[in-house]
Nucleic acid binder design. Structure first.
Lengths: 325, 325
DNA sequence: TTTTTTATGTCAACCGGTTGACATATCATG
DNA sequence: CATGATATGTCAACCGGTTGACATAAAAAA
């Protein structure tokens, strides 16, 4: 059997209460007793049972993280940053990949509640999927999950503006925007709004296409093909994420377009991975580490029941000029 | 306060024991009582406390997963597959990113033990970093962590053979191999062994380079530059992972090499992501989903104290012919 | 010397749920 | 009607650690 506090007490020749006092640094303890206790713990290989501690303390230091899938580099990096931020502050991460499925997401919420997580960071789509009694503090990254949930996002409007402006500045006459499903209520929709606003401001008609499915790594090429069929004279494309931008470029190149001469492309997200293997891509860089840290900070405030006036937390984006514009 | 079993009992007009019996499907319970209890749980929004359950049952259904970082697409996809496999079987994933740091890894091991995980899946480097009393069942993917730990890996020798053979078949006279740090004791070293064996079998002198640091997303270009300085006539490169292969190709192209005419390149891993955005890359595809599933299966057997004769579990790889060879 | 402060022990209750032992009552079956 | 299967209740112990109340004794300060 695993050694317990009783065993440590016996080995150290003290009472269980004293061992607990040493472990939690409470009350008066002499240095010699501390040494004895720590030594005994080493000797018998004692490992505190956090389950029992958490049960009594009503605090698990567990943070639930729900993302579509760590397969996608954006979420992979975001999860890595979240985990890092959590680890720094002593929290542990329970990982959930919702795979864009609403029922899975619901199940994960329930699971997290059963496991008494102290908080949830959710980066996912399905609005309305909130635990019946959303007792645990929660914060969303880049998605409006429910009206009362705090949101951390990057400045999607500015990002959309910058991307569109970049295309226009580089001389595009007919920049087209491609985005994900608009049924999702996400701040990312502001990118499209910004695109449309900038286009109109420049007396151009906005043209947008929508990728119907959210199947990240297997992007449906139909929409991309349709763009080039409908508009063979397209000279600029603002894609709502880098993977999409790359797919567009691949297809355009196969059709004989030269980038950036015939066609300019701007992506979105700017993950380290894509910047490493596709450094030529012009893209809007989201502050992934800052998103993670801010989300955790906001969550911590909630956990400590501090009131937070701002429901939304918007972080600045960066434009990374590559060679595709 | 959160409702507990007592509250459900009161609301349903039964005893706490009966509620527990309903929850755990033990003993005799009438359908009407079941209904009453479930209804009461709905009414008062009861959520079972898995902490308390786990404490008594001595089983948490938690699996610790230690990887270098989900930022890397290979680990990102592997973690996604592991999490999926776990979820299917009712396990929950505690995620740990070791960032290749031995002390972090040690800390994570301790943390997982404190949290009473039922098992650990470890995909990481630092041999020797094993919990003093490695009480929890554990299985390693693609790394020899300690002599008594079970290992699941893909057929690295065959992969190395296939990659080298591919280059030779395509007419390379001087294929060079680049691998990660050899100080790490990983089955991946078999790739290099296979490369050397195949080269010798073909009466060629093996030439290998080693990337000293394991800094995934910021590959040290020095080694790559040196290769082209030392061997301007290189006509084939077998890189030990896809990211490295891509970096090599970028640098070679910048020097004026044409791929695959002047230089042929084979990568390794074949993640969905790289295959999506770099479909032209010839690479050796690791069976990521199978690695995850097998690791969990092996782990489960350990958790159920079934004896397993084979310490190593080797899964087949696939060659994906692209246009870089 | 008296009073604090420091140091440690004993004991029981608690966190929330599980389980075995035992009692009791209803119902169906032989 | 006797018997066994079904259904539910009561109670206490347990999982492993925490904590407050209270007692006691030695060391330090007044």
């Amino acid at each position: 059997m695993k050694p317990k506090i009783q065993d440590v007490a016996k080995a150290a020749g003290v009472s269980p209460t004293t061992v607990s006092r040493v472990l939690n640094n409470r009350g008066y303890i002499s240095q010699s007793t501390k040494d004895k206790v720590y030594h005994a713990m080493e000797m018998i290989n004692y490992i505190p049972n956090d389950l029992a501690r958490s049960l009594y303390n009503q605090k698990t230091n567990l943070i639930g993280v729900i993302v579509p899938s760590t397969s996608n580099p954006f979420y992979g990096e975001l999860v890595a940053e979240i985990e890092h931020a959590c680890n720094t502050k002593g929290y542990k991460v329970l990982l959930c990949n919702s795979l864009h499925e609403a029922d899975k997401e619901q199940e994960y919420w329930d699971m997290l509640q059963r496991n008494q997580v102290d908080g949830v960071i959710v980066v996912t789509y399905n609005r309305g999927v909130v635990p019946k009694n959303h007792s645990a503090p929660a914060v969303a990254i880049d998605h409006y999950i429910s009206s009362h949930m705090h949101v951390v996002s990057s400045d999607n409007y500015k990002g959309g503006e910058a991307a569109t402006q970049e295309l226009l500045t580089q001389g595009c006459q007919k920049p087209i925007h491609i985005n994900g499903p608009l049924t999702l209520d996400t701040p990312a929709n502001l990118r499209r709004q910004a695109y449309e606003d900038v286009m109109r401001k420049n007396h151009k008609e906005p043209m947008t296409y929508e990728i119907p499915d959210v199947a990240y790594l297997n992007i449906n090429m139909e929409t991309i093909k349709r763009i080039f069929q409908d508009h063979p004279d397209v000279d600029g494309i603002f894609a709502s994420d880098d993977l999409l931008a790359i797919k567009v470029m691949q297809y355009a190149t196969s059709l004989g377009y030269s980038i950036p001469n015939d066609l300019k492309v701007v992506g979105y997200d700017g993950t380290d991975l894509i910047q490493t293997i596709y450094p030529e891509l012009t893209t809007i860089v989201q502050p992934i580490a800052a998103l993670a840290e801010t989300a955790l900070t906001v969550l911590e405030k909630q956990m400590q029941h501090e009131n937070q006036p701002e429901k939304e937390n918007v972080l600045p984006i960066q434009v990374k000029e590559g060679h595709t514009t």
